[in-house]
Design a binder for these strands. Structure first.
Length: 455
DNA sequence: AGCACA
């Protein structure tokens, strides 16, 4: 025995192991090269590259101890040393009996992302905002949020690894778009790794956690009592129940606000399903329908009080509508159903909305709102699932455009307050418009720089 | 050229 145990790490004779320790490997030696090296002697069942401070060591594990012995024995008596890329490598038995591959969990791709929200106001980030951000890449099944030493974190569950990966690649290191956050909030960036989870357990819908696959999941009592930011539309207890349909009234309407303009503005937060415009008291109002309440909530919070055009023109006031599904009977310049691919509609007739706009239509209502057409026709509220790709992961505003959006250059949504950057010359021209009373503009009077013509 | 690190 003598000196065998005196300096364990520098013994020249190791007890045999099916794991071999390799040194002096070339830079960035690959697993394939190690397998090639060991293959003549047996079955290589595992390897580990880039070991040690210089990352030039490695391990090879054989299926059988005799195979490792064969390799050591061969090179012990061979005139040709073991080589990788012409470089001599030194072999010996490892002092361990098996390779433990410590792949960090963050390196193993999965369908659940671990998101760390960084920033002084990180914990103020609403779960609905997170949902919206990640929905751009596919249907978000569940979100849970929690506080850890790392800060404010969230687990975001997608249906598959591919979707999660695309979200991670696009969002890791980026900031949440400013217009999705309250104005006075400092920026929040996202750090994203893969979680080892595959299916999150969400017991309640709450301000901390959501299960979007199960809209009927009970609402956490704490969330109801808090009555603050939370509402999934399951309980009618709130004073102004959240809705997937927004009622927007437009004040100080110096310029024409068309259906297209509204669509551009509101589509920044998710696909707009339907829009219906109508007049009330000489002003313009519109109902904007999203597929889900969460999107509407974010849109309302972002847009409320902001003006479509610089200078406080066409200022938006937004509330939740009592509608859940607008009945659009015809696509024209005042109403549009974007869920119907073709503008051809059966039995065309003037736009009929539900009760809410009907009540608002006074004597000044345009003639196309025909009396006999007002019969309420409430459709069955449809429980829409999340759109497959929020902002259009496969559409024109896909993840590849996220950097733009993150820089507040979202093509559809300049930050509120500086929205459609109208040319000043045009604004002067518009001063001639006889629109002090906020009367709706005819189509020919719309500003030339409509949002949908800008990038 | 000398044993991995969550």
């Amino acid at each position: 025995m003598a000196s065998v145990s005196s300096q364990p790490q520098f013994r020249y004779t190791q007890p045999p192991s099916k794991v071999l320790h390799l040194r002096n490997l070339p830079w960035e030696c690959t697993e394939e090269e190690l397998i090639e090296l060991g293959k003549p002697f047996g079955k290589v069942v595992n390897t580990k590259c880039n070991v040690g401070a210089n990352r030039n060591q490695a391990f090879i594990e054989f299926a059988d101890l005799n195979q490792a012995i064969a390799m050591i024995s061969y090179y012990a008596s061979s005139s040709e040393p073991a080589q990788v890329r012409g470089k001599t490598v030194y072999l010996q038995y490892s002092n361990r009996q098996e390779i433990v591959n410590n792949k960090t969990t963050a390196d193993v791709a999965g369908n659940v992302l671990l998101v760390t929200i960084e920033g002084t106001d990180a914990r103020l980030v609403n779960i609905d905002v997170l949902h919206l951000v990640f929905s751009a890449f596919g249907f978000v099944h569940k979100i849970t949020t929690f506080e850890k030493t790392a800060g404010f974190q969230a687990l975001v569950q997608f249906s598959d690894i591919e979707t999660a990966s695309s979200a991670k690649n696009a969002l890791d290191g980026r900031s949440i778009p400013r217009y999705l956050l309250p104005e006075n909030m400092s920026p929040c960036s996202l750090r994203i790794t893969y979680s080892a989870h595959t299916d999150l357990s969400v017991k309640f819908q709450s301000h901390r956690s959501r299960d979007y696959t199960n809209p009927y999941l009970p609402v956490a009592p704490s969330a109801i009592d808090a009555s603050g930011q939370f509402g999934v539309g399951l309980d009618g207890k709130k004073l102004e129940p959240e809705s997937n349909v927004l009622l927007a009234s437009i004040e100080n309407m110096q310029y024409a606000v068309t259906l297209d303009v509204l669509n551009q503005v509101f589509s920044a937060f998710g696909p707009v399903q339907k829009i219906a415009m109508f007049d009330k008291n000489g002003g313009l109002q519109a109902l904007i329908q999203y597929s889900d309440v969460q999107t509407a909530v974010v849109a309302k919070e972002a847009l409320e009080g902001h003006s479509i055009y610089d200078g406080g023109f066409c200022k938006l006031h937004i509330s939740y509508s009592r509608h859940t599904d607008l009945s659009i009977k015809i696509n024209n310049d005042r109403s549009r159903d974007y869920t119907i691919p073709s503008p051809v509609m059966v039995n065309p007739q003037p736009s009929i909305l539900g009760q809410q706009p009907m009540q608002m239509m006074g004597a000044a209502a345009p003639h196309q709102y025909n009396g006999g057409q007002y019969a309420p026709n409430p459709e069955q509220p449809v429980m829409h699932h999340q759109p497959p790709a929020g902002w259009g992961a496969s559409g024109p505003v896909g993840p590849q455009h996220m950097p733009h959006m993150m820089n507040n250059h979202h093509p559809y949504m300049p930050p509120p307050g500086s929205m459609p950057q109208m040319g000043h010359g045009m604004m002067q021209h518009q001063q001639h418009m006889p629109s002090q009373g906020g009367a709706p503009q005819h189509p020919g009077s719309m500003p030339p720089n409509r949002p949908d013509q800008m990038q």
